[in-house]
Nucleic acid binder design. Sequence first.
RNA 1: GGCCGAGUGGCGGAAUGGCAGACGCUCUGGACUUAAAAUCCAGUGGGGGGCAACCCCCGUGCGGGUUCGACUCCCGCCUCGGCUACCA
Length: 884
Amino acid sequence: MPRYNPAAIEPKWQAYWEQHATFAAPKMPTGPKLYALDMFPYPSGDGLHVGHPEGYTATDIVCRAARMQGKSVVHPMGFDSFGLPAEEHAIKTGVHPRIQTEKNISTFRRQLKSLGFSYDWGREIATTDVAYFKWTQWIFLQIYDTWFDAELQKGRPISELPIPDGVQAAGADAVRDYQDERRLAYQSSAPVNWCPALGTVLANEEVIDGKSERGGHPVVRMPLRQWMLRITAYADRLEKDLDGLDWHDGIKALQRNWIGRSTGAEVYFTLPGVQDVLVPDEEGTTESLFVTTEIRIEESLDIYTTRPDTLFGATYMVIAPEHPLIDRLTKKEEAAKVQAYREQAARKSDLERTELSKEKTGVFTGSYAVNPVNDEHVPIWVADYVLASYGTGAIMAVPAHDERDFEFAKQFGLPIEAVVDPGDALPPAERNEVLDGRRYFGGEGVAVNSGKYNGLRTAEFKRKIIADLEEQGVGREAVNYKLRDWLFSRQRFWGEPFPILHELDAAGEKTGRVRAVPEDQLPVDLPHLDDFKPHGRPEPPLDKAPDEWLYPTIDGVKYKRETNTMPQWAGSCWYYLRFLDPTNTQAPIDPAIEKAWMPIDLYIGGAEHAVLHLLYARFWHKVLYDRGVVSTVEPFQKLVNQGMILGENNEKMSKSRGNVINPDEVVKEYGADALRLYEMFMGPLEATKPWNMNGVNGVRDFLGRAWRMIVDDRAEEMALSPAITDDAPNADELRVLHKTIKAVTEDVAKLSFNTAIARMMEFTNFFTKQERRPRACMEPFVLLLSPFAPHAGEELWQALGHAKSLAYEPWPKFDESLLIESSIELAVQVNGKVRGKINVAADADNGTILATAKAEPKVAEQIAGKTLTQEKVVPGRLVIFAVK
RNA sequence: GGCCGAGUGGCGGAAUGGCAGACGCUCUGGACUUAAAAUCCAGUGGGGGGCAACCCCCGUGCGGGUUCGACUCCCGCCUCGGCUACCA
């Protein structure tokens, strides 16, 4: 086999590795451990994309090098295989989603194997495996069985929830209600994003610009019973624990931003004693809005603000259209307008609410609230720029110091009163505009028009007024989060069924009580369905399941199963744990194994998962930690996001742009090693970079050069190049070798693969020119190359006379002393410009070097007749003179 | 609008205070060959000078600053990309 022929050697070594289980990881690490994880793919029908092998090759290089460095390495792969496309395919063709999913998984598995990744395939899992999602359901039950103890900041078993005496006295049902309201998994009927075209509700993050992320179908809001996970309880810990993680600051910032912690105050605006108000009828609907009476209102209108120092500038209030007090605050004269506005707001999708944001909308309720700091009566408006789901759903509007309030006030002619003097923060003209109420200023400054607080700086004002509000019982310090509880149910077929049963009464109606499926009855598998079509109503497809699945009886009580399914995120929230103990039938993972392998030392994947997947998985992990299932606080110690690979035209790869590169074709044309090497050589792992097929050809040529450096490519049979010698290498050869070992070793540790490859190219360029190539240099080089181009590495290793795979050969070590050259060239700078070069012995002392440099004719010319103000030697690099 | 990242030859990139452009692609020339492919060798930021080995000037998005010295650090902008968006 004279010529470098990847088509022959790559399948050969893939078969060898499989046959010898070369990369099977031990159950427990036997020394220093490395858990390197790729974000497992969704097995789409399109097959592997060139973006996949980018991160996968990076972790594979790290793993292969680590094995040679004596580490116990676990490097698994699996499939995130629940998801909409398979179900949509099923709806179209009538073929069960599992069949399509398994077909896609086979394709992915074949493609991944063709790239020579050193996965332990014995650990492969798919989230759609019944044996896997049994434990996804089990974890859901743990979450369901947990309440969050705010004092201890810890999730605890629901059985440990203290029950107040009053609730206890009210009976068992009251206790159950009390518990159910506090579980981390709970039901709620908040408005959701209903997408008629997909026949499902979507999470906020699956809605982009009021359209579904998948398919771009219109989305409307409607109330529906849903399962929610109380991720907000963990907001603080999710934010604080980011500190200890070895993640890029940008990704941490993204998560912090998403959690969106803010501190401020809740302030209670009292509502005047007696008002004409509208009274809702008994059902709490607004049918009988026009019935009016006089009642005494004792509530206050509570608002949240991050700027309690601007309380004196509050000239009106705004409540969200969904605010609970809205009916009671709406006066008769305004009722029709308010009602119309509410209906209009309810109809609006998020898109419309934001798209029309240029124009603020709202109506006056007719009511007033009393500002606790100055007893002024301020009008209460309804506007959809205030969100019901954030803070208290109501704000005090300070138009002088908030952009949105300012726009609204201008639109409706409401007063604007400045209470913060920007001082030097703005040019004088703009400052005066602020003080006159013609411009808003959102920054910090000095208080004005604020009674006894005048003259205080913002930060101090905040501290003081919060204390005063608390003392008077009209407010308190408060913390808020942008993060919302996680809408966890989907009206789909192809997802994990909830292990939850709804109790039925004698008439077959739901009693409103639910219970968990007993642990010994897990898993709850998906039932047989005759067809998968959604019916265009929000009820899930599982409502069409056969009765024997849908209506189980336990202890004589009849139940209806929960027919929602879990979202795709569920399976990926804990797959990294299952990889460590994939066949355990007693537990999701053996605690001893978890303790030994976790946390993940390197997690690589696309930035598109920087927020949601990572946040959700971290949340589950923390619940599992609190419940004693895992020993680690955080799952992903080090995270790296690989950059996007663009098409050859510098645009995002997509079918419609026609610039998609198919990895199979690259493997066929150039080989898997060339594909791997090219993806690593393109540029830094985290950078976005365009594909260039000439570049693939270039690294393939490099592999050919490396091949010919060692192998006689004209021989009929496999034979070493006649230049290979058993002679001892000379000093130059040793220096090049050890320089290469050092650079590649350090670059791999830094994940700087492009520069590591450049150093290996330099090695090859050097030795190709040598007519004598010592085996003692070639062998370490092959070992260095092998993590990048494993098939070529193995083949060359074999050619050099080794019978066994190089996968566990010791990684070459470098010797600093061999890196030193006998004489070195130094550049000489005068006033920052290179004026000459000198050659000195490598061990020359500074005095000798400076003298040599001064004697260099061009340097001498530059410094002649001037005063030398500085002279310095940068070891091994250059000599510096500064003259005047 | 906010946050994050990035701007260096024809192209991908290297250098994170010390010889800008490593390494590769592209292109050009040469060797080998009947020829081509493959391979090998050499050159390849711009401008200017010299018969010549070589020499000089300019050059890392733009404008300032710090420094003997800045792609690198600081201040102010511009452009592109990603994420996010009324969160009070």
